[in-house]
Design a protein around this nucleic acid. Sequence first.
RNA 1: GCGGCCGUAGCUCAAUGGAUAGAGCAUCUGACUACGGAUCAGAAGGUUAGGGGUUCGAAUCCUCUCGGCCGCGCCA
Length: 572
Amino acid sequence: MSDPQLVLTERVQRALGAAFGEEYSSADPLIRPSQFADYQANVALSLGKRLRRAPREVADEIVSHLDVADVCANVEISGPGFLNLTLRDDWIAGEATRELREGLRAGGERRTVVIDYSAPNIAKEMHVGHLRTTIVGDALARIHERLGDRVIRQNHLGDWGTQFGMLIEYMLEIGEDVARAQLASGEINEFYQAARSRFDADKEFADRSRRRVVLLQGGDETTLALWREFVDDSLAYINRVYDKLGVTLTDADLAGESKYNPMLADTIEELEAKGVAVESEGAICVFPPGFTGRDDQPLPLIVRKSDGGYGYATTDLAAIRHRVRDLRADQMLYVVGADQSLHFQMVFAAAREAGWLTGQRAEHIQIGMVLGRDGKRFRTRSGESVKLMDLLDEAVERAGKVLADRDYDEETRNEIAQAVGIGAVKYADLSVNHASEYIFDFDRMLALTGNTAPYLMYAAVRVRSIFRRGGFTPEDARGPIVVGAPAERALAKQLLAFGSVLTQVAETSEPHRLCAYLFDVAQAFATFFEECPVLKAPDEATRDSRLALSALTLDVLVTGLGLLGITVPERM
RNA sequence: GCGGCCGUAGCUCAAUGGAUAGAGCAUCUGACUACGGAUCAGAAGGUUAGGGGUUCGAAUCCUCUCGGCCGCGCCA
């Protein structure tokens, strides 16, 4: 609780209670960063009407009951009733020292949060869209865990469906070894297209494929074994991508569509028994209220097709039920493309009707499309979708080129290039609001200046460099921190906000706020680095203070980037 | 037609209903034998697509118009 915004919120609330009665002590004091002071409280203006008094009078009243002598050096009323709050230097310094020595404590609410993310389709190539859902979801998972939540990752793999009949038959035709090699190297699209053209050209092959689907859905052992092999071969590639990306997903988090297969019939039975699902044109549908289609007709969520098959709506409903009943989720995040918006609205509505979703939060974290530099859907020049591994390799290669003139041995250079290249791609994904479309541009994301991963890494590396040069370690720099110079004060104040930024990011599922915060930290450090000599500080106490401030900066940067899934190299 | 996301500086993007809408890039001007210049400081750049409304206060909420992208009965 060292974040000034939280401390001031509590203090002002107490003053509100004392001044206007207990019922006002829970009002939000609206503490905001201010350009006229460190923070401002806007509550007097919003309370004016409710109290039927002039805002300035309200502000006066708050100030006379406000006990912040230990925190604030100055409190003044300004304008129509803003409360400008200036922090005491020694308070900032003291809190920063405490944060350094005690570490950033988790404010654990201990909720169970199910995060559904990545979800590649086994039968299709992973593309940049998957990259984004994977990276954003992984960051959210790390952040929730850090805050003490119980996080259950669910990789809703697309591993089931009618196309697998065709894929299995094709696998048999070309030989399992050949298929394995092709799938594990990520040539899934090529594989799919080849199978598809066989299916279209050869009626006999098509018939075999259809029979294979029936066998698969009927649980035929041999077919299931073949299917399993197909899935495993594709997974080998997907796991290589995860590995390269440094994503926390493992096989233990796999919860593909096939997993829900045994639950589907029962899911629909329950829906029908509750009167939620009804028969319509031969299919079983849920008509959640408030959804209409093209001709003003109620929009159906088809849970069983007229041919008896199941679609992904059924799977998603079964998954919700499972997550609430068995996994005991308090909150479910679906980190999925924005184009699925309507689908999830309907699924959530249907789950509410069925009584599966009650107090739990279910949210679709909409992921915007990734565009190329031309502003259109991200593709190669020839119009193909870009193979994910190639994309990552290119990022690393480009990062390596930037390092070419540095005096590192090859292994070190490769390590750094890896961290910088992958970090740059991830940060580019994360630093923009998840719902916005964003333009994928290597040059911009790998730039060493601006709001990029390389810049933030560089800031952290510069801190490390100070310690290396001086023969100190960050672990030994324990302060005390004293703030004198404006740059020291600004940096220390900025560092204190880390904890509440994390809380906010978890609450809103907006990792880009953490990026913005870390960028501000890096900039505050840059100014400090320029204006306040550390190793050449005028005296030992100042040096120790600045070393401590540097150590805390390093901790926040490395921890913060780590929560985004980004590794900071030792040197750059 | 319905729904979703969106329209903010030349470009890429921010802004938990608060005072003069902020960063970065690009542009221009400064500062280097450097605690690592892969840097820092400063300047310039805006009718927040447009109209109306709510509010003490709107980029933000409501409404209409214009424009863009995405989705909308048996693919996932």
